[in-house]
């Protein structure tokens, strides 16, 4: 209308929570740290080597893919770092360097970038990598073989292998309380139950993960394991044993609620979480694998778009 200086225009709303993907991922990393630090404290340098290499490689693959695909550099959003960290936390401290290199490649490139990067992955990238390792290099992930040279003064036989081979009687060799406090063999960052729980509660309170998924996931495991246990107490372990061993707690708070591969509506979230929990116990108790977390969540990832069709009526 006149020659005056023009103002900056924009569309409503003019407020924002101030939240961002970077902040969210940094919080996820912070929440994962207690468990990771416990692993480093327990295994020392080898564990630190695995975690740093894993985070570094994941970020490097992301950067390389950004450059190849001519996309904006996205390592700043800390998503690759988080994937690297969680992947490292699932490995034994003795994991060779090449398995980390290959694993992070699968996670970042196959699991995430080829679908278009953050938000586009239909599966949890960490679990894609872990599934590949479990199928291709089973021995490397076998905690009994990997941690044979470590002795911390507690039972170093991988608890889930013990119940798989010897039935529920093996549970008596373990103390549930010390299992929860991290006195067990397993992944670097997967054994410290209390640390994972604190991290998970922190994330739930801060609203960074879908708490419905975590809760229904744990309930799904508990109830299914309980049913197995009352059906045959000799053969199947008590439900709490399933909660504190293997990747359960890592899965509940850091793997299953991964944003893009999990549903957003209330009922689908509950079905998804509970379904993953049920599948884990099925795989552990009657399936071929020692721990079912990886495949159970992956299967639910596949079904996720179908679940999310269940949604409330608009207006």
């Amino acid at each position: 209308m006149s020659e005056q200086k023009l103002l900056i225009g924009a569309h409503a709303p003019f407020w924002h929570t101030g939240d961002s993907i970077t902040k969210k991922n940094l919080n996820l990393i912070i929440a994962a740290l207690p468990a990771a630090i416990y692993g480093i404290w327990m295994y020392g340098m080898p564990a630190l080597r695995v975690l740093t290499l894993s985070v570094g490689c994941a970020m490097l693959w992301e950067l390389i893919m950004n450059l190849i695909m001519k996309r904006p550099i996205s390592i700043g959003d800390a998503s690759a770092a988080f994937i690297g960290l969680v992947f490292g936390m699932m490995l034994p401290a003795t994991a060779p360097f090449w398995i980390i290199l290959v694993g992070t490649f699968i996670a970042i490139v196959v699991g995430k970038q080829i679908y278009g990067g953050i938000g586009c992955n239909p599966f949890n990238p960490v679990l894609v990598a872990m599934a590949m390792l479990l199928l291709s290099w089973k021995d490397v992930i076998d905690f009994n073989a990997a941690l044979v040279n470590y002795d911390f003064g507690f039972n170093m036989f991988y608890p889930l292998s013990a119940v798989k081979s010897f039935g529920a009687s093996a549970v008596s060799n373990y103390n549930l309380h010390s299992l929860f406090m991290g006195k067990q063999a397993g992944g670097i960052g997967a054994v410290f139950g209390i640390g994972l729980l604190i991290g998970g509660v922190y994330l739930i309170l801060r609203g960074y993960i879908k708490w419905e998924i975590s809760l229904s996931f744990l309930l799904g495991i508990y109830i299914t394991a309980y049913l197995f246990h009352i059906h045959n107490p000799e053969k199947y372990a008590i439900p709490l044993f399933h909660i504190v061993t293997g990747y359960t707690l890592l899965g509940a708070f850091f793997l299953a609620p991964e944003d893009s591969s999990s549903p957003v509506n209330l009922i689908p979230k509950i079905i998804y979480g509970a379904g993953a929990g049920v599948l884990i116990v099925l795989i552990r108790n009657i399936g071929a694998f020692v721990d079912g977390t990886v495949f159970a969540i992956l299967i639910m990832n596949v079904a996720n778009p179908m679940f999310d069709k269940i949604r409330p009526k608009v207006l």
């Binding site: 023009l6 103002l7 900056i8 225009g9 409503a12 709303p13 003019f14 407020w15």
Partner: peptide, 13 residues
């Protein structure tokens, strides 16, 4: 208008 639904203007006129 307000912060959620307002409309920016681009000229002081």
């Amino acid at each position: 208008g307000g912060p959620m639904r307002g409309k920016t203007i681009y000229s002081l006129d």
